[in-house]
Design a protein around this nucleic acid. Structure first.
Length: 603
DNA sequence: AGAGGTGGTG
DNA sequence: CATGCACCACCTCT
């Protein structure tokens, strides 16, 4: 790879005076493509500061001292929609520049997302060092990055050189990635992802408000229940253990640690003489012993307390009073988001004992508008297979599981089908859900309580009824194996590492690729629709001048926080835009989104 | 520190 | 022959 600069004699200028800033600005204004990076004292945009802003052209890097230069000097450059800004992990710099300088980056090329799009399924590490090494052969020393953490003194020359190289290297990386994106026909996907960056940036900056006292109340209740169950278990099994241990304060010590699988296994296998291979819920469920039931009860509460307890409240940001989770834009190889610190995509669904979701509340004077797609994956199946009867069912907005059951078992569809034939509907529902995962008869049988042969009969019946679904699924798995990748309708690819013929697990791995090859186009298409929706909604918020923000997304759901008096109108818009997001590629089956306005996170 | 088990979400 | 997709957090044990 030809570099346009000499890595041993980096072309950079350190800019720490207004006049130098002005001339650097003038010089950069001539460029159509600039690269951008920031060095900050930390990762949290609200509790750290920008030290350096680097802006590069292909043969020169300007390193601005953010503590001496007025950001406003750079604003017209960074906000110019005609200039392409190349960044590594643009979301981070977007948030920093927005929070500290009021600068809104646009027209973004994100090398991290580009690499992810180009290697989905193959590589998981998309650090600048890895990408630069791969595309230019130059190895970056990222150790210096750590030296910016909490820095209060003046930056040294080594730090400036490091900062300069980060933006210089982005040019050859960008050039190469752009060629590859075109070659792999991934430009459309890349443009979508790059458009989503600013939405994610704003979403993370906005965060969510949580009712801490209500949250704590739930945890306390759960702890009470857990402790009661735990004591009951300890008392019940104490006689089985020879050693009577006394606790520090006179009470009896626990006989075993209820969270320990080995100790639990020992309890069942050696003390209760009930052989179990694992302590998972599906196994304990079948154990006819009161202790098994108690442990399941204990587990249920312990899980909620440990995963969703105090740890989440510790994430409340001191500056904003809200929680700002990390959204990973291409968190899954299918194209889905993932979420962490904390993971707001796995908050339990609303229930009597654990109403966690109702603790998420909009700010004073605002409402939540929560919208999700209904039966999206089945609608995508209908669209991809072009099955007229499925499409018709969705056009009439029928319950899809009832409709498939009606077709499979030659019954008349009716609005009370679920009441009349609950078992038939359940069977169809399990097939519908299972088929997008490539499920087999064994698993289906387990789910509906019949043997594998009977279950296979149902599946045969299903595929006889929906021949084109079978054709599509077979073709999807074959294509994945033959091509080494699968694709969503907009062309998002997921690659597969093909096993060597000599691999002892060859068949197993191929079977797995076949299942992933069926699942990816469906799950990925859903993700694509949601991402288009995010972009459409974001633009619409601005266009309509709505006082609101996108705060959360969970795969087929988008949560907005909108000023009270505008919420109802926005709900209608949100529903329309989400359906439009799906119609980008759904040309046969109508998508459907449903929105509700409320004071808590619910749907 | 990392793996494995378990279990929460879509 | 065997066969459920995609994540992340917390726990224990090595």
């Amino acid at each position: 790879m030809n570099l346009e600069f000499d890595p041993t004699k980096l072309p950079y200028k350190f800019v720490d005076s207004p006049s130098d800033a002005k001339s650097a600005f003038e010089d950069l204004l001539k460029e159509e493509v600039i690269s951008v990076d920031t060095e900050c004292t930390g990762l949290d945009p609200y509790n750290s500061k920008i030290l350096l802003i680097q802006i590069g052209k292909k043969d020169m890097a300007y390193v601005f001292d953010a503590r001496k230069i007025d950001c406003d000097t750079l604003k017209p450059l960074l906000e110019d929609p005609k200039k392409l800004k190349v960044l590594q992990n643009a979301k981070f710099d977007y948030e920093m520049l927005k929070a500290h300088c009021g600068i809104t980056l646009n027209n973004i090329f994100d090398s991290m997302l580009a690499e992810r799009i180009l290697t989905c399924g193959l590589e998981r590490s998309n650090s600048l060092a890895a990408i630069a090494e791969k595309h230019t052969g130059l190895s970056l020393d990222k150790d210096i990055r750590k030296t910016f953490e909490g820095l209060i003194t003046q930056v040294n020359e080594q730090q400036v050189r490091y900062a300069a190289l980060d933006v210089l290297i982005l040019f050859p990386v960008f050039k190469r990635q752009w060629e590859l994106l075109q070659k792999e026909d991934l430009v459309k996907v890349a443009k979508l992802e790059f458009g989503v960056v600013r939405v994610v940036g704003e979403m993370e900056l906005k965060g969510l408000c949580i009712n801490s006292s209500k949250w704590r109340k739930i945890i306390r209740e759960l702890e009470k229940k857990r402790d009661e169950t735990a004591s009951k278990i300890q008392e019940t099994i104490r006689p089985l253990y020879k050693v009577q241990q006394m606790g520090l304060f006179g009470g009896s010590a626990d006989v075993l640690n209820l969270n320990s699988q080995p100790q639990l296994l020992d309890l069942f296998n050696n003390k209760l003489n009930i052989d179990i291979g694992s302590t998972g819920d599906s196994v304990l469920e079948t154990v006819k012993h009161p202790v098994a039931d108690l442990i399941r009860e204990y587990r249920g509460h312990e899980k909620l307390i440990s995963a969703f307890g105090e740890s989440i409240l510790e994430k409340v940001n001191k500056k904003t009073g809200r929680i700002h989770p990390d959204f990973q834009q291409i968190g899954a190889d299918t194209g889905r988001f993932s979420c962490s610190n904390p993971n707001f995509q796995q908050i339990p669904r609303e229930s009597e004992v654990a109403p966690f979701r109702s603790c998420f509340v909009p700010a004073e004077g605002y409402k939540y508008v929560v919208a999700d797609y209904s039966s999206m994956e089945m609608r995508i199946v209908a669209d991809l297979t072009g099955d007229e009867r499925l499409i018709k069912a969705f056009e009439k907005d029928w319950d899809v599981h009832s409709a498939t059951a009606a077709l499979m078992f030659n019954k008349e569809y009716s609005s009370d089908f679920k009441k009349k034939y609950p078992d038939l509907r359940q069977t169809s529902k399990n097939i519908n859900f299972g088929l997008v995962y490539g499920m087999g008869p064994g698993r289906l049988g387990m789910m509906i309580g019949v043997d594998a042969a009977t279950a296979k009969g149902y599946m045969d019946k299903y595929f006889e009824t929906f021949k084109n679904v079978k054709i599509w699924l077979d073709s999807a798995s074959k294509l994945a194996v033959r091509n080494g990748y699968s694709m969503t309708p907009i062309g998002r690819k997921r690659w597969y590492l093909m096993p060597d013929k000599s691999d002892p697990n060859y068949d197993k791995i191929i079977a797995s690729i076949e299942r992933q090859g069926k699942n990816h186009p469906i799950q990925g298409a859903n993700a694509d629709a949601t991402k288009y929706s995010l972009v459409f909604l974001f633009d619409r918020l601005k266009k309509e001048g709505v006082d609101g923000a996108i705060t959360h997304t969970v795969h087929d759901e988008i949560v907005c926080e909108v000023r009270e008096d505008q919420a109802n109108d926005w709900a209608k818009i949100q529903q329309e835009e989400m359906e439009r997001g799906a119609r980008v590629f759904m040309k046969h089956c109508p998508p459907k989104a449903q929105a509700v306005v409320g004071d808590v996170w619910e749907h």
